[in-house]
């Protein structure tokens, strides 16, 4: 497949430039934004639905909705925050529908086991023995995260893993700063209880 000069340039293009071009109808610029954020959006959907196929579909739906709503994107927030918000809303709607249809649980405290392949993605390169240890630790952390409600899980991941501020998390989750703080508090308490020995012995 040939790569056009414009797509090469897009690798380094700022989000704001790509958004501006996409707003003018440039589908290739939007494709670059998709490539840039698809892994993160898919990851966020996956953390919420814990199913690869559904997460894949929801992430795709989020980008299509974003394309259709591009005209309303004013750049007050970053594109990254904005696409997260769309993905979060789509995924929550999906979870609510599943709850209504009785096809899945939407409990505050999930006790279900971890789905096959649901371990966290290990970060960085490790020696083989370390890699095994990290995989085990990763699975344990994922199991702990899975016991949180979707709200608590999203809040803690956005804060601790993605480094979003309270204000940004509130925008993404369409909630108040007080609610964000409360969700973070309870998520941390639960994870402390489940993982204390893991980080104290590390």
């Amino acid at each position: 497949m040939s790569i056009s000069p414009s797509s090469l340039n897009d690798v380094d293009a700022a989000d704001s430039d790509l958004v501006r071009r996409a707003q003018a109808g440039d589908a290739r610029a939007f494709d670059s934004l998709v490539t840039r954020y698809r892994g993160k959006v898919y990851g966020m959907c996956y953390h919420l639905v814990q199913n690869e196929q559904d997460a894949w579909d929801l992430a795709q739906e989020a980008f299509i909705k974003a394309w259709r709503a591009l005209a309303s994107f004013k750049g007050d927030a970053s594109f990254y925050t904005w696409i997260y918000r769309i993905a979060h809303n789509s995924t929550y709607d999906w979870l609510r529908k599943r709850k209504i249809e009785g096809a899945g649980e939407f409990d505050d405290e999930r006790q279900a086991g971890v789905a096959a392949g649901a371990e966290t993605v290990p970060k960085g390169e490790h020696r083989p023995d370390e890699a095994l240890k990290n995989r085990e630790l990763g699975t344990r952390i994922q199991q702990a995260i899975d016991q949180l409600s979707p709200d608590h899980r999203t809040a803690i991941l956005l804060r601790e893993v993605e480094g979003f501020s309270y204000e940004e998390i509130a925008q993404i989750m369409e909630s108040s700063m007080g609610t964000v703080m409360s969700r973070l508090f309870y998520a941390r308490k639960k994870l402390q209880e489940l993982l204390k020995d893991a980080y104290e012995n590390a």
Binding site: A59, V121, N134, G138, I141, I145, I156, V161, Q192, A198
Partner: peptide, 19 residues
Amino acid sequence: SLRQLGNLLRANVDMERPL
């Protein structure tokens, strides 16, 4: 304790997943 918890999460969890 909370700082260690945050470090543990950051070191082992990645929001981004291979699509």
